[in-house]
Write a protein that binds this DNA or RNA. Structure first.
Lengths: 196, 196
DNA sequence: TTTCATAAAAGAACGTCATTCGTTATAGCA
DNA sequence: TGCTATAACGAATGACGTTCTTTTATGAAA
């Protein structure tokens, strides 16, 4: 019929936004800068995405999933249950919640200002919790996915994930060093690996 | 010398801001609305506070401290260590992180957008973690404040606190019901109370 | 009481941003 | 070669935190 959306423009928007967010933060990444980086007018961004937040979720969701799946593979390579669980917890809290790109930090900014109109659905969180359960079941002989203690572990781990991401943000703002997170990781591991 | 700041105006600003935040959220509470509620011009707000965020911290800090101290007293009234720790965890996660006023929810919005210029200092978090250690020591015979496992528990509990507050915000936005948090609470209690 | 310096109070203006509106230009189809 | 839907654009719009400029009230000194 008429003119058609250009996939390369859509990609340019995502690429530009991703590099802006990684360089600064969600708040400092303006639609104007995203558009400039993509070589288009700011108003044209809205032909491809309905809001700035949606652009960000379009970037974050596959990134997060890829990180978790990579972690799953890394865990599978380890031999003992203890090492596996340690890697799972450490990977989530250090590599993903406190990632170099700052994507998760940006997630906190995004979620904090979510409004009903943005129609945010916490599918990603549910997916992550289920994935954690699955990884633990593969790591520990005899662990059952329905075990409420296991589900509690997964939920607690994701709540801690959010907490760490939140803390990372404000600590960076306060120029404060990362607190000793290893004790917390040990405690979480201890929940599943009986050892005292 | 000259005209002097009116303490009642300062209080009017705080009262107006507190009720606005409780009714809506941090983001929806504009300086203009705060000023209107206080019966002054928006610009005059800046004679008493240097930023909107500072107004909020002025409200939140004493509120949070009072909540924690009240919780401490409630815990002291209970008899068994198990009940005490249960109350501590439940009080923090349900009554304070998921409070009716929405103050803690607003904290997440504030922290998420903290910029270095706002000079946020995480004193409150450190105070809370130390307080948790103290409450646990009073609850459990022989618990030592220096015990790294105890400090890890306190840190984990506060990270979970942030996570819950964060979740509350976005779940409210998604009109989703509160997930079953009791399993998580049980798991946290289990860290200190050896039982299953 | 009058004067005067100081600072609170008010109002207008600024700068920033996400988003929308009105218009133009262009890709696809008859 | 037109015709049409719509991508693309530039110029608004509307919010909002904050600052600038001006006015006004206060309290101390004369």
């Amino acid at each position: 019929m008429a003119r058609v959306k250009n996939e390369s423009v859509r990609q340019a928007i995502l690429t530009s936004a991703a590099s802006q967010i990684a360089m600064t933060s969600y708040m400092d990444t303006t639609v104007a800068k995203i558009a400039k980086g993509a070589g288009i007018a700011p108003s044209n961004v809205y032909v491809y995405f309905e809001s700035k937040l949606q652009i960000y979720f379009t970037i974050y969701t596959p990134w997060f999933e890829a990180q978790v799946l990579a972690l799953e593979r890394a865990v599978a390579r380890l031999k003992t249950p203890e090492r596996k669980i340690q890697r799972l917890v450490g990977g989530l809290l250090n590599d993903i919640a406190d990632d170099k790109t700052g994507y998760t930090s940006a997630l906190m900014e995004g979620l904090a200002i979510v409004m009903p109109k943005d129609k945010y659905k916490p599918d990603l969180l549910h997916w992550a919790e289920n994935k954690i359960v699955q990884i633990v079941c593969n790591a520990i002989e005899g662990a059952k996915p329905e075990d409420p203690r296991l589900r509690a572990f997964a939920h607690l781990l994701m709540l801690t994930f959010d907490g760490v991401a939140m803390r990372v943000k404000s600590q960076r703002a306060a120029n404060e060093s990362t607190a000793n997170r290893s004790d917390v990781e040990e405690a979480l591991v201890g929940m599943l690996i009986g050892g005292r």
